[in-house]
Every structure is written in structure tokens, then in C-alpha cells.
Design a binder for these strands. Structure first.
Length: 496
RNA sequence: GCGGCUGUGGUCUAGUUGGCUAAGACUCAAGCUUCCCAAGCUUGCAUCCCGGGUUCAAAUCCCGGCAGCCGCACCA
């Protein structure tokens, strides 16, 4: 079995994630999370919110609809541009992107062309199928958005949103007023987005329905330069692994070596890097920031870095998060189409804020944790940051007699009011450790005869397999210290 | 979407020139045992992707669908 199949099998067996509607054969690009996967995902989202909303008191969380009206997505450009023009060969059935065919022939970008322009250009160039030399059928527009009919008449058209960002832009004005005419510096949302991929593969990595965690930062470059410069200057001591266009290799560089980029961008770039290094505890050798070249990035993005992780299960570097400087494109577009003012007053007159967007694929991040954490060395275990693990701890009786199960149950119930805990008495003690190892439970506590006599209990750590003995009355404090990183397990071992 | 390969208990697999009650390992559950890392014993649950066809008889052959893998294409 490949790494990917091995991991997918564990995910199904233990209750993390699997294909949606699988009793009917499933659907390509749709996945459901089981009880453990859901806990893991909830913990990730909490960690994300704590970290990014904690960056500034003026960063806020919103919750916006999955369905958006036609006009909103027309204004954002998605109705016209979030699509491919597909051309099919009438002989062999191969399909191609119209703009790519034209680009290959002419060497010039054809991405801007609409259906009619592509059609006439194709006729002009007299192109034929690169695969078999056959003639092409008429080009068709394939929009990647899921189209919906709203209400009973069928003529009110909407879409499932292709990105959560639009929900934020649409609410900018309202939030501005609700915050008593103070510009929301950051508006975040975690929610579903939908893209009708032609042929999704790679499991959780490319789905048709997926979850995004996005933080949109609003600012007026002239008015807020100082604000971000201060934030950046306070923290600019950091080395990051970066790959920029034209560089052969990923290099470890000091953030100050990129000071040709603006502070608002560098500040968030550092924060993103720290999130993966410190919160998700991904080894730095598996993280890099990659800047996209002009050809790769969308036309409205002025600066675009992706955070990439090396996935063993997918055989390469893959994007899990992007940082995009979208300029004032989004708010300007909505201002134009809606007729609503999206500008804020500054010393320099009214200005439409610019946006820098932090866009995380939640499911991709979950897969990153699974990919990087799942180990099959001398045991099968899942190495997770303790705070993200589905269960924080488990409590067992060493044997099933002499009152040990009852005592362990008592301790479990007490701890379970404060942490996500698991209790198990079936099988042998080794089996119970093994079960928790596989789902990444960081701490296992075993009630033995000494517990009955002295009220102490063993705490075993997943990574080392080592144990410490602590007083039952101190358990909560010890777990809390371990979770919050106030004290390491090694430090407790030395004291022991 | 195209081409090739594939789909068997919860998981992984055997069985596929049509033919006996579809087999094994692990898992899981109940119990026994067990003084710390998947031990052992007993008992038990559960399967041929879906639909149609051929046939006395289909997990096996044929058709359609769905899904997965590989390659192509695609991934604003």
C-alpha cells in the first residue's frame, strides 16, 4: 500500500474522514468527517481563530451565507472570469482550454478573451486537435461555480460561493457603520466554498465542497503605513524558508532580506510562517513560502505568496495557504456595481481600502496534519500538537478488578469536565495505549494499585512513551501546563 | 472529460477458464485472563460497489452507472 492508501485506510477505520455518501458509491470531490476528524478540525479552527484574531483587537470574525446572488458574483468578476472556455475535438473527444490553445499558437496571453473572441480567433488560426489532428466542436463556456435557482420561479439565479472572501467584502460597509465608523482592520470568516472541478483527485486536497478560513485585512496604503510598520518592526527577527521566482532553491533567509515588499505584507507573511512552525508544529524542512511568478498569479493580485508544505502522500510541495495583495480591486468593483460608497475618510480625502488576504484551505491543513503526523515506525501513531489532538487524554484501569475500573472512571469523569477525555477498559493495557497512539491522544493515564493507596497516577506521553507519576489532585494542573506549553514533559520527568 | 487498470466483512487481501454453506489475517463487541505498551483463550457481529442482462447456475461473463488509481487534460 502507498502512504496515501495507508493513511486513508486509518482515517476510515478510526473515524477521521472518508468519501461522502459512500453507501451509494460516493461522489468525486466530496468528503465527510467522522467523530475524530471533526474534533481535529474544530481544534484547528479554534487554534486558527486564537492566533490570527489575536493579532489585533480590530480583527473580527463574521459568518456569512454560502449562497450569493447573481449580481454579487457578477460584480466580483466570477460570472465572467471564474470559468474556462473548453474546446472538444469532435473525432477523439479530447478537451482543451481555448485560451491555452491560442496561447500555444500565438505566444500571447489569451486569458482575457470571451467565448466569441476565442471562437473567431480559432477560426482565424485554423487550429486542429493536437492529439489526433481532428476538427474542433464549437467552444463552450464552463463556469466553475455551482448555479442555483432561488425561489419558485426559476428566474432568480444565484451561486454557491466560490470563495468566502466575497461575503466579507459585501459586509464591509455594514461593519464599518456597526463599528461606529471605524474601519474594520481585519474581517475573518471560516466557512464552506464550492467549485465545480472538472475532475477532482488527490482526496481531501481538491474537493468540490471545501472549507476556507480567510482573513481579509483592509487598509489605505498612505494612511496605515505606520500602523503596519510598527507591527512589523516589533517582530522582524525571524528566519523563514522562502522560494522566489528565479531562485533555483528554497533558501532560509532573514525577513529583512525581503524589505522591498511592504510592511503590511511582510508582517502577515511572518505570522503565517509562525502559525505553521509553532502552532501546527510542522518541521521547518517541510514548510516554505513560495512567491508566484507574474504568469501564475491572478491579474488582480499584486503580490502573491503561497505557504507550501511537503506532502509525502501527494509526492510534493502543495499550497495550504495563500497571502494575496489584492489591491483595491474588490471593494472598487462592488462600489461600482452596487452604487454604495466603499470608501473611508482619510487625511487625504476619501479612499477605497486595499485588501491583503490570508486564505487557508482548512481541509488541506487537516490533511497536512495527517500527512506529517502519521507514523508507522515500531508502532502506528499520530504525532499531533497536543492542543489539536481529538482527545487530550485517556484514562485506563491497569487491570479490570479490585476497584481499579471504578477509580479510573471517577478520575475520568472529573477530567472530562475540563478536557476532551477518553475512557477504555477493554483489552490489555498495551492494546489501549496502542489505540490511543493511532488517534494521536497525547496523554494516557493509568490507574494502578498505588493509585488506590497513595492517590498518584501514571501519565504517559505519546511521543516518547515515557511515564511520570503525579498526584491525582495535581492532574488538571499538570495537563493544563503541558497543553499550554508552560512546562514540558521532559521537565516533569526530571522532577519525578 | 479521454485512455488503461481496478472495485470481495470495519480494514487489508485470497477466490475470477461460471458450479458445494465465499476464505484468511487484523479490527471490533461480550467475557475470562492480565501489576504498564497491539500477549493468550472462549464466544459473537459483519462482505462480493449499484442497476440490468445472459445462464439450470454469476463475486466470476456482457451492458450501463458510480467510485478509486495511473497517464493526458484541468486545478480563476
Amino acid at each position: 500500500m502507498s502512504d496515501k492508501e495507508d493513511l486513508e485506510s486509518m482515517c476510515k477505520r478510526r473515524g477521521f474522514v472518508w468519501q461522502s455518501a459512500e453507501i451509494y458509491g460516493g461522489g468525486s470531490g466530496f468528503y465527510d468527517y467522522g467523530h475524530l476528524g471533526t474534533k481535529l478540525k474544530e481544534n484547528w479552527k479554534k487554534a486558527w481563530k486564537d492566533f490570527f484574531l489575536g493579532l489585533d483587537e480590530n480583527y473580527h470574525l463574521l459568518d456569512t451565507t454560502n449562497i450569493l446572488p447573481y449580481k454579487a458574483l457578477e460584480a466580483s468578476g466570477h460570472v465572467d472570469h471564474f470559468s474556462d472556455i473548453l474546446i472538444k475535438c469532435e473525432r477523439c473527444g479530447s478537451s482543451y482550454r481555448g485560451d491555452h490553445l491560442i496561447e500555444d499558437e500565438t505566444g500571447e496571453s489569451a486569458e482575457w478573451m470571451d467565448l466569441e473572441e476565442i471562437k473567431s480567433k480559432l477560426g482565424e488560426l485554423k487550429l486542429q486537435c493536437p492529439n489526433c489532428g481532428g476538427d474542433f466542436m464549437d467552444p463552450e463556456n464552463f463556469n466553475m461555480m455551482f448555479k442555483l435557482e432561488i425561489g419558485p420561479t426559476g428566474d432568480n439565479i444565484g451561486f454557491l460561493r466560490p470563495e468566502t472572501a466575497q461575503g466579507i467584502y459585501l459586509n464591509f460597509n455594514r461593519e464599518y457603520r456597526a463599528l461606529r465608523k471605524r474601519m474594520p482592520m481585519g474581517l475573518a470568516t471560516i466557512g464552506r466554498a464550492y467549485r465545480n472541478e472538472i475532475s477532482p483527485r488527490q482526496g481531501l486536497f481538491r474537493q468540490r465542497e471545501f472549507e476556507q478560513a480567510e482573513l481579509q485585512i483592509f487598509f489605505v496604503p498612505s494612511a496605515h503605513k505606520k500602523f503596519f510598520k510598527e507591527k512589523y518592526d516589533n517582530e522582524k527577527k525571524i528566519y523563514m524558508r522562502v522560494k522566489r521566482p528565479g531562485w533555483e532553491e528554497t533558501k532560509e533567509i532573514d525577513v529583512t532580506e525581503m524589505e522591498n515588499l511592504p510592511e503590511f505584507f511582510l508582517y502577515h507573511l511572518m505570522k503565517i510562517y509562525q502559525f505553521y512552525r509553532d502552532i501546527m508544529e510542522i518541521k521547518e524542512e517541510n514548510i516554505r513560502l513560495r512567491e508566484l511568478s507574474d504568469e501564475e498569479k491572478a491579474f488582480y493580485n499584486k503580490i502573491h505568496f503561497d505557504l507550501e508544505i511537503y506532502f509525502d502522500t501527494l509526492g510534493g510541495w502543495k499550497e495550504v495557504d495563500g497571502l494575496h495583495y489584492r489591491s483595491d480591486y474588490d471593494l472598487k468593483k462592488h462600489q461600482e456595481r452596487s452604487g454604495q460608497k466603499m470608501s473611508i475618510p482619510t487625511d487625504d480625502g476619501r479612499k477605497v481600502p486595499h485588501v491583503v488576504e490570508l486564505s487557508f484551505g482548512v481541509d488541506r491543513n487537516i490533511w497536512a496534519l495527517l500527512d506529517k503526523g502519521y507514523k508507522t515506525d515500531d508502532r502506528n501513531w499520530f504525532d499531533l500538537p497536543p492542543k489539536l489532538a481529538p482527545y487530550t487524554g485517556a484514562v485506563f484501569p491497569l487491570v479490570r478488578k479490585d476497584g481499579l475500573p471504578e477509580k479510573s472512571r471517577e478520575i475520568f469523569e472529573d477530567l472530562n469536565e475540563h478536557f476532551d477525555m477518553f475512557w477504555d477498559k477493554s483489552g490489555s493495557i498495551g492494546k489501549r495505549y496502542a489505540r490511543q497512539d493511532e488517534i494521536g491522544t497525547p496523554y494516557c493515564m493509568t490507574v494502578d494499585y498505588d493509585t488506590l493507596e497513595e492517590n498518584t497516577i501514571t501519565v504517559r506521553e505519546i511521543r516518547s512513551g515515557e511515564q511520570i507519576r503525579v498526584e491525582v489532585k495535581d492532574l488538571k494542573k499538570v495537563l493544563k501546563n503541558l497543553l499550554e506549553g508552560k512546562k514540558t514533559f521532559e521537565e516533569y520527568m526530571k522532577e519525578d
